[in-house]
Amino acid sequence: MEHTIDHSAEKFEAKNEVMKVTIILSVLTIVELALGFLMYKMFPEPGFARNFIKGTIIILMLSKAYYIVAYFMHLGHEIKNLIMTIVVPLILFVWFIIAFLYDGHSFNVNRNTYDRYKNEKGQPHQMNPNAVEEKAEKPKSVE
């Protein structure tokens, strides 16, 4: 953070930095895809493993966002005043995400508890994996 005001260094580093960030972004994307594939192959049922992988993917997503904003959009090399004027308002997202997802979850719980007859027929009906396969094939036969 302290050396963001230094503008002379940015010229030599620029070319290497582009290469480095490109490689980092590609590697992170490949890891994300590998995790997505792992989740599809190894953990088809909801559970801790799946949520853990999803959490990891979200952390990787945020680090990709950091590399794009800091290096490709060059925000990391701007002065602190500019960084702060952009980043500080974005802190609202912390509240935004927590509040709304919590609200969505509590809406689900409330409907399932007090308003069952109106609710979409979600979970309990067909839990056997064969049914999943059968239903999943359906769109293809329509085509």
């Binding site: 935004f96 997802l101 969505g104 689900n108 399932n112 979409e120």
Partner: peptide
């Protein structure tokens, strides 16, 4: 976030 909210509210 609205996508996430609706997804969290669905069974």
């Amino acid at each position: 976030i609205s996508y996430g909210t609706i997804r969290f509210s669905s069974n």
